[in-house]
Design a protein around this nucleic acid. Structure first.
Length: 400
RNA sequence: GGGGGUGUGGCGGAGUGGUCAAUCGCACCUGACUGUAAAUCAGGCGGCCGUGUGCCUACGUAGGUUCGAAUCCUACCGCCCCCA
């Protein structure tokens, strides 16, 4: 078993890391806990509501990694039960509940993705269905009796909904209770989660105190937000996010496509570049340097982190080729046609580049479709094997 | 239980008998511009047909009135507010 590190400097380093937004009850109290020299357990809950872990999740993973390096135990809790209910956090309308099957499918790739940041031996996995599924109605009532409706509706987003006369369902009140009960069931010493989870995490803290007499600590991490608009950069329910599963080129491209001002948050909270380097980049941007280079560095870092240096280099070169020089990338997706030639509209629709025939026609009309660099002028155009099809600025398809 | 509202495209939100595939905003797509962007400007944004005063499907669900319904009526379903 790993040795518990009680070196005050190292502990301070973890607690003062840039990933942390807030700590409860306080950083000092948490520090004291670390200094006790006991092997503590910290957990991160992830709800498998989609197939991907995105950049917003990794802030937590980076922090957990550091806690693990101090010798403590990390639990990744898969919210296979809670995912089926739907967390109301930050939503103006309630999230759709998932079926058991959907949850299972989403779970599959989750751990693989977690391991890209947190080495396998550093954490163990639990599923909250293990205890939540077994609870009786009586158990649930008892749990519910520990909190008041006022406590629940005090949350911002519930207030929003009340103001807008939008429904709040009872099961949405139950969500924080379930999540809170996870802390009790696992008897953990601490929880790490995004700042938007603070309320839920604190419910767990109250429950731990009441049921176990244990003072569970909570560390809330920074969220990836656009500093200008305050909007979340990763939005799973809207399908806009950068996944750890994105291919190197996509990963690189998606970072490059982000608004300039959001690059510092991403570099800060979604990578492990040293603070000193971060400060340098910040300074350069303030000095009026082209943000493109900061973006490139960020994109490069991310690809390097998940696919290694070689892929990062390749992605960078590919990007430069396609966008700066307007050339065709090296490895593009292929689309098979059965004859030697095929109508362009069929290929567009069949490959998914267009969602319908009408959309395909529109794209042609808008001069968005190019074959080997030549704009397609009419709907009846045929494409042959070996041709390179391009739609918009960056979607390519090789016909085979 | 009673009363009053409300249900529209991915979201927000207009429209209260024809001119509505449905104003507008967001999101999204395309083009121009550029440093990859963002911002800005222009266009698009249900489906189908080489395209027209075109056809089909759609304004919670099911019926009805009407030459004609997102709009009126009836029932049902959901949600919100007030009273009890």
């Amino acid at each position: 078993m790993a040795k518990i590190i009680v070196d005050e400097n190292l502990i301070n380093e973890v607690l003062n890391s840039r990933y942390i937004e807030a700590a409860f009850p306080s950083k000092d109290k948490i520090k004291a806990l670390f200094l006790e020299g006991r092997r503590l357990s910290f957990y991160l809950g992830v709800d498998p509501t989609g197939p991907d872990i995105h950049l917003g999740h990794t802030t937590n993973l980076f922090l957990l990694k550091r806690i693990a390096e101090l010798g403590h135990k990390i639990i990744i809790l898969i919210g296979d039960f809670t995912a089926r209910i739907g967390d109301p956090t930050d939503k103006e309308s309630s999230r759709k509940a998932l079926t058991e099957k959907e949850v299972k499918e989403n779970m599959k790739t989750y751990l693989e993705q977690v391991q890209k940041v947190l080495p396998k031996k550093m954490f163990e996995v639990k599923h909250n269905s293990a205890w939540l599924k077994k609870m009786s109605f009586e158990d649930v009532i008892r749990l519910a009796s520990k909190f008041t409706v006022q406590q629940m509706i005090a949350r911002d987003m519930f207030q929003e909904r009340i103001k807008k006369e939008k429904p709040i369902f009872i099961h949405e009140f139950l969500y924080p209770l379930m999540q809170g009960y996870d802390s009790v069931a696992m008897e953990v010493d601490g929880e790490v989660g995004g700042n938007d989870q603070t309320f839920n995490m604190l419910v767990g803290r109250d429950l731990s105190k009441e049921v176990l007499g244990k003072d569970k600590v909570v560390i809330a991490t920074k969220l990836l937000e656009d500093p200008k608009t305050g909007k979340k950069l990763m939005n799973k329910s809207e399908g806009q996010y950068i996944s750890l599963n994105d291919a190197p080129n996509d990963l690189f491209g998606k970072v490059m496509a982000m608004p300039d001002q959001s690059i510092i948050p991403v570099l800060s909270y979604a990578t492990e570049v040293p603070d000193s380097r971060l400060a340098e980049v910040r300074k350069m941007l303030d000095g009026g340097e082209n943000p493109k280079m900061a973006k490139e560095e960020t994109a490069y870092e991310l690809v390097k982190l998940y696919y290694g240096e070689k892929e990062a280099q390749k992605a960078k070169e590919g990007f430069g080729k396609v966008f700066s020089e307007g050339k065709t990338p090296d490895n593009i997706e292929e689309f098979q046609i059965s004859e030697e030639v095929a109508p362009i509209l069929e290929v567009l629709e069949g490959s998914g580049l267009a969602n319908s025939r009408s959309e395909a026609k529109r794209l042609v009309d808008q001069k968005a479709v190019t074959i080997n660099g030549e704009a397609v002028e009419d709907w009846g155009h045929e494409i042959k094997k070996g041709d390179i099809l391009k739609v918009g600025s960056h979607r390519f398809l090789k016909i085979v």
